[in-house]
Lab assay of single mutants.
Amino acid sequence: WVPTKREEKYGVAFYNYDARGADELSLQIGDTVHILETYEGWYRGYTLRKKSKKGIFPASYIHLKE
């Protein structure tokens, strides 16, 4: 896992994603996520609506905010 280059990196989910394991994070369309790390097509972070739950999710489900 590699920390993100920018201190504040955010994105928005444009697909729903159902977590398949305890380390994964479920997403709903429109969720804003804070991205902490990246690795081979995956991000690690949390949604702003539930900051206490961190997990991994596919990068392809996220539109990055500039």
Rank of each mutant, 00 (worst) to 15 (best):
T47V: 15
I62N: 01
P3W: 05
H63A: 10
R20V: 11
Y43F: 08
L64G: 01
H63C: 15
G11A: 02
R6H: 12
H34Q: 06
G45Y: 08
K50F: 12
E8Q: 11
K53Y: 08
I35N: 09
I56C: 11
A59C: 10
Q28H: 11
S60R: 14
E7H: 14
T32A: 11
G21D: 09
K9I: 10
I35Y: 01
R6W: 10
P58H: 03
I29R: 10
L25Q: 00
L25S: 01
Y46K: 03
K51W: 10
G11V: 04
H63D: 08
R6D: 13
H34E: 05
T38G: 06
K5V: 09
A13K: 04
E24S: 04
K51C: 15
S52E: 13
T38I: 11
G30P: 01
T47S: 09
T4M: 09
D31I: 06
A19Y: 01
I29C: 10
T32H: 13
I62V: 08
H63I: 14
Y46G: 02
E66K: 13
T4D: 06
Y10V: 08
V2F: 09
A13I: 04
K65Y: 15
T32E: 15
Y39H: 09
G30L: 02
Q28P: 00
R20Q: 13
A19T: 02
Y17P: 01
D18M: 12
L64C: 13
K53V: 12
L27R: 00
D23W: 10
N16H: 08
A22T: 10
F14M: 15
Y15I: 15
T38Y: 13
Q28I: 12
K53A: 09
D18L: 12
G41I: 05
H34N: 03
G21T: 14
T4K: 07
R6V: 11
V12H: 05
E66L: 13
G45Q: 03
E66R: 12
L27Y: 01
Y10N: 02
S52G: 12
Y17D: 01
P58D: 03
N16F: 07
V33T: 00
D23G: 12
E7G: 15
R49Y: 14
D23I: 05
G11K: 03
D23H: 11
T4Q: 10
E37G: 06
I56T: 06
N16M: 07
K54W: 11
K5G: 13
R49N: 15
K65F: 15
E8K: 09
R44M: 13
F57C: 04
K5P: 10
F14S: 08
V33K: 00
E24Y: 05
T38L: 07
K50I: 09
F57G: 01
L36H: 03
R49L: 09
E24Q: 08
K5N: 14
G41V: 05
P3L: 01
S60I: 11
I62W: 02
K65V: 15
G30A: 01
T4C: 15
G11S: 02
I56K: 09
Y46F: 09
T32Q: 12
A22Q: 10
F14N: 07
R6L: 11
W1N: 07
L27F: 04
L64Y: 03
I29E: 07
Y39M: 13
E37W: 05
A19M: 02
I35V: 05
G30V: 03
A59P: 03
P58T: 04
T47P: 05
R44L: 13
K51L: 08
T32V: 15
G30Q: 01
L36T: 08
T47A: 12
I35P: 00
Y15S: 14
F14H: 13
K53M: 10
Y17H: 02
E8A: 12
I62L: 02
S26E: 04
T47Y: 05
Y17W: 08
V12P: 00
G30D: 02
A19V: 01
V2K: 12
K50R: 11
V2N: 11
K54T: 14
S52P: 06
K5A: 12
S60K: 15
A59F: 03
L64P: 04
R49M: 10
G11T: 03
